[in-house]
Design a protein around this nucleic acid. Structure first.
Lengths: 111, 111
DNA sequence: CTGGATCCGATTTGATACTG
DNA sequence: CAGTATCAAATCGGATCCAG
C-alpha cells in the first residue's frame, strides 16, 4: 500500500465512509451511549454503527468505556485526537451548511 | 433519500470516494490537463479519474474547458465554489499532515 | 490525447435474526 | 442494552478494448 501523499489524503482515509462524519458530528455534543447514537444517526444499522465505531476506536479517534452494569451500558466519546480532528472538520461543516441548498440540488444524479 | 442532516454530511458527500480529495489537492496548484492529473495522482486509472472529474463538474466544483485542437486538450480547474471548498479543506489537510505518522501506523488493519 | 463502454472482482452496506 | 452472525444487495474500483 502506498504511503499517504498528503495530509488531506490521510485525513480522508480516517473519516471516509458513509457514517464516520455523522458519528463524529454526534459525539461533538459529548459522550453518547450506543443506543443514543443509534437514534441520533438516522438510518444506520447496528452493524454499521458498531463497525465504524470500532474502526474509529482503533485509530484512537473515539474512546469506548464499558460500565459493567445490568443493564449494560457503553459510552463513546472523542479522544483528544478526535477532538482535534473534529475541530479541523468544523470549516468543512460550515462550508457544507453554507451551500446546503445547491448541494441538495445536484445530489446523486448520475450522468 | 434523506436530506442532509448537517453541513458536514453534505460536504462528505461531495468529497467522498477514494480519489476526490487527491483531485482537489492536485487542482490546488492551478489548472491541469487530463494527462497531467493522471500522472500527478499516482495509481488512478483513466476511468476513475474521468468518473470523479465528471462528478465534481456536475457539482460545480471543477470547471472543464475543452480546446478544440489536434491533439485534443482539456483543462480542468477549480470553480469559485471549488476554491471555497478547498479552503475549507485546508485545516483537514493540516490535521492529517500533523498526525501523519500515527495515522500510517494504525492504517488499514481490520479487527 | 482524451475519454467512452463493458466486464468482473473486491469492498461496502444493508436486512434479519440471534445472544450475553 | 449492546453487540454478533449470516446472507444478500449495492456500490466501487480496476483491466481492457474501442473511438473521435
Amino acid at each position: 500500500m502506498l504511503p499517504y501523499t498528503c495530509g488531506l489524503d490521510a485525513a480522508a482515509d480516517v473519516i471516509g465512509g458513509k457514517w464516520k462524519p455523522r458519528i463524529l458530528w454526534a459525539l461533538h455534543h459529548g459522550p453518547q451511549r450506543f443506543g443514543e447514537l443509534r437514534k441520533e444517526i438516522e438510518g444506520v444499522t447496528e452493524k454499521m454503527l458498531i463497525q465504524q465505531l470500532r474502526d474509529l476506536e482503533r485509530r484512537d479517534i473515539v474512546h469506548r468505556e464499558v460500565f459493567h452494569q445490568v443493564p449494560p451500558k457503553v459510552e463513546y466519546s472523542l479522544t483528544e485526537l478526535g477532538e482535534t480532528l473534529n475541530a479541523a472538520l468544523a470549516p468543512l461543516d460550515a462550508w457544507g451548511a453554507e451551500h446546503l441548498e445547491e448541494l441538495e440540488l445536484t445530489r446523486g444524479r448520475r450522468a
